[in-house]
């Protein structure tokens, strides 16, 4: 994929509208940054386990009990609200 196409593709996946200038700027920068990321290719990583969490924590779980909540503060932050609903423009 060409650099600018890659930037457009990941911008679409990230739901970010870029200006043309941003597309050009980012594609130049990405070429350099990704090249730098590629230094990892020097490593022989075949048998190495990836890290999932740095501490040996496991089985963190809570018991199944429900509590009443106060939703008003959460609804108060809605950019668009009608009664107790959040609202957005149509999905299609």
């Amino acid at each position: 994929m060409k650099d600018i196409e890659l930037v457009r593709y990941v911008a679409k996946l990230s739901a970010i509208k870029l200006t043309e200038e941003e597309e050009i700027k980012f594609s130049k920068q990405f070429a350099k940054i990704i090249e730098y990321f590629n230094t990892l290719n020097e490593l022989e990583l075949g048998d190495v386990e990836p890290v999932f969490s740095v501490l040996p924590l496991k089985n963190v779980m809570r018991t199944d009990s429900a509590e009443a909540k106060n939703p008003e503060k959460i609804l108060d932050n809605a950019p668009d609200r009608e009664e107790n609903y959040f609202k957005t423009p149509k999905t299609i």
Partner: peptide
């Protein structure tokens, strides 16, 4: 529509460095 709204929102209100990192991470 919804899709346009979120793309506009994120394009407009995230700063350049944040956008750069989100795009790199998505990649």
């Amino acid at each position: 529509n919804f899709r346009e709204m979120i793309e506009n929102t994120r394009g407009e209100f995230f700063g350049e460095e944040v956008k750069r990192r989100i795009l790199l991470g998505t990649f």
